[in-house]
Amino acid sequence: MANIALPRPASQMLPNNQPVSIWLPAASLWWREMVRFYRQRSRVVGVILSPLVFWLLLGGGFARSFRTGTAGAEQNYLEYFFPGALVMIVLFTSIFTMMSVIEDRKEGFLLSVMVAPIHRSAIVLGKVLGGTTLSAIQGLIFLALAPAIGIRIGIDQFALVVLIVFLTAFALTALGFAIAWKLDSASAFHAIVNLFLIPLWLLSGALFPVSGASGWIRVLMRINPLTYGVESLRAVLFPQMVSNEDFALSTSIGILATFSAVVFAIAYVVANRRSTKPAA
């Protein structure tokens, strides 16, 4: 493909008869998400400021409450709540970034992607990694404020937190993708997503611990994948607090990773389906 000036057969322009590898299109779609994000200044402001605002209100609100006063092993509620707050930020941002799927469809952009000779997983991967990146950045900005409440973590803890945040963000973004793919309006997306979002978060151990919940709620909390995000974050950030052996760190991360893979596969199946209805 060195000399491009002469008209040449299509077979020479395109290297072989296989579908284009998934990495180049996926990277290009990811890059587009980043560029579009950066060029819409209000989104940039939102992503950076919302964790800060959230943090300020949370810190201020909890300033005098729930402080147990006793030093040492006793955990105050703000510390208890911190992993849940982090997951909440990631949860909302992840799912709502996938509103861009609906925008892309409305703006016609998605059509030109869908007639390209690429594997559908490249479309899912590019879009989902785009959303994951944005929401993980937002989560990590929030994490950067951890020292303000006396949470000090080392580099290996930090790496683990990044991994957990990434997995959580990836799974939730893929979930948002799967929901958004079939919907044609932002309001429908809001309606469906709200149905999932709040219960998913409430039952994740973000507000109250699994151990203290009543029987059936405890079951729901155990099957909620988000619980493993919150619990694994808690295990990394406050290792001395975690006495609950049900949520061993490696098991929790394993469950998160499996959940990510499953949701990604669902998003792929949804996007790969062709029908006798108009695609867009």
Partner: peptide, 14 residues
């Protein structure tokens, strides 16, 4: 156009 090219496996100087 660059993005479009990537969707068809084209890249780089070409």
């Amino acid at each position: 156009l660059h993005h479009q090219g990537h969707l068809y496996g084209l890249r780089g100087r070409a």
